[in-house]
């Protein structure tokens, strides 16, 4: 060893100082605390951190903090929120469609009814993607093949059987005149691997979210054959919706925020107002654009209505497909 001992010690101390400052920054109690029911880097995490970042940059909040709590398919974070209530100060939880699906299938014991909806922030839609050199040029061609033999169209998705990617695809095939139960859904461990599966040619179609599909389209020449938006998206008029193709199916994957069940209504209204303002700021607009999200603000009351509607829609699909009785 060439270094004298005290120099190494000093280096160690300096390193510890940096680390403790960082951990301190993470642990510092902030004005608004975001509870993320999944790990860092996932869709929930990205949305929460993006919203927090825009809140601070636009000056709507002076500080925001984040806590990742994965487990139980998101159920642990929900149980935590119900248990902790408002004792933790200002806390909101990000969530999306899977909370509805997992409550229906019984994987999580609670549902959105056990929480207070705060605001619906953004919408994403289901998208069906093929590779650039795929023989299928349109959704109709895919359906023709599927009606001939369901085994000809293997559909990849980034999550387990019975989860969103699967249910949306099955519902779309059903609505387009095929048998949704016969769908050959191939589950991958993550969205990235499902994309790789599509590009490797082992599956013919990818069922994913619209923003992911746009990213894939930009990076590797994939083609989006159809999306599940209720109406054509203004920025992408050339991408057909299932409705515009004449099939009665639409699906919206919302991402919104919830508060603990014992939060006073006035507080919920205040949170909701902050997020309404947030969606109008240029800072949010920048975040929204780079992620390919679509604003879909809903007040707590309207949000609750949408949730109930979606619950009904998805319960029907899951019953049709035999996932629940």
């Amino acid at each position: 060893m060439t270094l004298p001992a005290h120099a190494g010690c000093r280096r160690l101390c300096r390193g510890l100082l940096v680390l403790s400052m960082m951990l301190g920054a993470v642990a510092a109690r902030a004005d608004l605390h975001f509870l993320v029911p999944g790990g860092p880097g996932g869709g929930w995490d990205t949305t929460a951190r993006a919203a927090g970042e825009a809140l601070i940059k636009s000056g709507l909040e002076s500080n925001a903090s984040f806590q990742n709590m994965s487990g139980g398919g998101g159920g642990r974070a929900i149980a935590y929120m119900i248990k902790m209530g408002t004792k933790q100060g200002d806390m909101v939880m990000i969530n999306s469609t899977p909370i509805v699906l997992r409550a229906l299938s019984g994987q999580i014991p609670n549902s959105f009814r056990d929480l207070k909806p705060v605001a619906n922030l953004i919408a994403d839609y289901g998208a069906f993607v093929v590779t650039a050199n795929s023989p299928y040029q349109s959704w109709e061609e895919v359906m023709d093949a599927y009606r001939r033999d369901p085994r000809l169209v293997k559909v990849a998705g980034g999550s387990a059987r019975g989860s969103m990617d699967h249910l949306v695809a099955a519902q779309a095939f059903q609505a387009s005149g095929g048998d949704g139960r016969k769908l050959a859904y191939i589950p991958y461990d993550a969205g990235g691997q499902a994309k790789a599966g599509l590009l490797s040619g082992e599956v013919q179609l990818l069922s994913t979210g619209f923003s992911e599909a746009l990213e894939l389209m930009r990076s590797s020449d994939a083609r989006i054959l159809a999306i599940t938006a209720p109406e054509t998206i203004a920025d992408y008029p050339e991408i057909p919706t299932l409705k515009s193709l004449g099939y009665p199916m639409s699906f919206v994957n919302w991402r919104g925020l919830f508060a603990a069940p014992d939060t006073p209504d006035a507080k919920v209204a205040a949170y909701s107002a902050v997020f309404r303002k947030l969606l109008e700021t240029p800072e949010w607009e920048a975040v929204r654009k780079r992620n390919g999200w679509l604003n879909n603000y809903e007040t707590p009351e309207r949000f609750l209505e949408s949730l109930k509607q979606q619950e009904e829609q998805m319960a029907r699909v899951m019953r049709d497909l035999g996932f629940i009785r």
């Binding site: 387990a160 989860s163 699967h166 589950p187 996932f323």
Partner: peptide, 9 residues
């Protein structure tokens, strides 16, 4: 855990 291929626990 949840079996990805069947969705069963």
């Amino acid at each position: 855990g949840i079996d990805p291929s069947s969705g069963a626990e």
